[in-house]
Write a protein that binds this DNA or RNA. Structure first.
Lengths: 125, 125
DNA sequence: CGGCGTAATGCAAGTCGTTTGCAAAACTGG
DNA sequence: CCAGTTTTGCAAACGACTTGCATTACGCCG
């Protein structure tokens, strides 16, 4: 019997607003609290785990050893500015072609990928 | 006045042998010890940090939150079997074309990337 | 409306891998 | 052989993530 969970709702809400693709659990926790609702870090953690299980949100790998998430939806990869940390997203198509080539070359059946470019954003370069 | 460092040498040696692309520090520590030489975990840790700074070895992002390394040399990305954990490497060319397209599309100056495919290896599929 | 059973939460403590501080040991060049 | 580094080991600190447990809050059923 699913019961209302304001923590989970808040987290989902935060994730689904805006354009960020690099929410850490701590960020989410802060955002929820900034939104006026009390919540313990562990509750946010559990909410995130659950939403990830649901498929509502997705884990993003920034390569810093830290769990980061974004709302699900269209899949795309990211590029992050080494200087200011800005994260932008890329259209998926970058790897479309590559996957089949990799499958043929390696014999693996590909189920997914994580791609992260690093560079300098227009402002920082 | 660089002085001999058997720990660093052992670590480098382990990394440069064989084909592994996913050495965790713990793995390296174990390998060094298995090779018959005593070494503390922290010494291995420092050796790894230093070799990475040197550019002798490179950090590999497997997406499990864990530091992993491989010997430098030709750059290539990896594909990992979700079932047995086997890691194979890919020829760099997969992204060659993509980078310039991304640069044009985003305005970023690309300096690097981390790409990790996941899938099922020929044995497990 | 008054229990019941289960889900959600907060708090505190635990884990795990990574880092550091510090003093002892090992070299190297002079 | 001495002074001045480097390297090591050991133990403790850390940061981020996880869990255990008791409490609270609902939703449902009678």
């Amino acid at each position: 019997m699913a019961r209302p969970s304001h923590v989970r709702d808040s987290v989902r809400h935060v994730l689904e607003e805006g354009e960020r693709h690099d929410w850490s659990i701590e960020d989410l926790h802060a955002a929820v609290i900034a939104g006026g609702r009390a919540a313990d870090f562990s509750s946010v953690f559990r909410a995130v785990m659950r939403l990830e299980g649901d498929g509502t949100i997705r884990r993003v790998n920034l390569g810093d050893g830290r769990l980061r998430f974004e709302a699900s939806g269209l899949h795309h990869d990211h590029i992050r500015c080494e200087s200011c940390g800005a994260v932008a997203s890329l259209p998926e198509c970058v790897l479309q072609r590559a996957e089949s080539r990799v499958e043929q070359g390696t014999g693996f059946a590909i189920t997914g990928h994580r791609l992260m470019f690093s560079g300098l954003c227009p402002n920082c370069r």
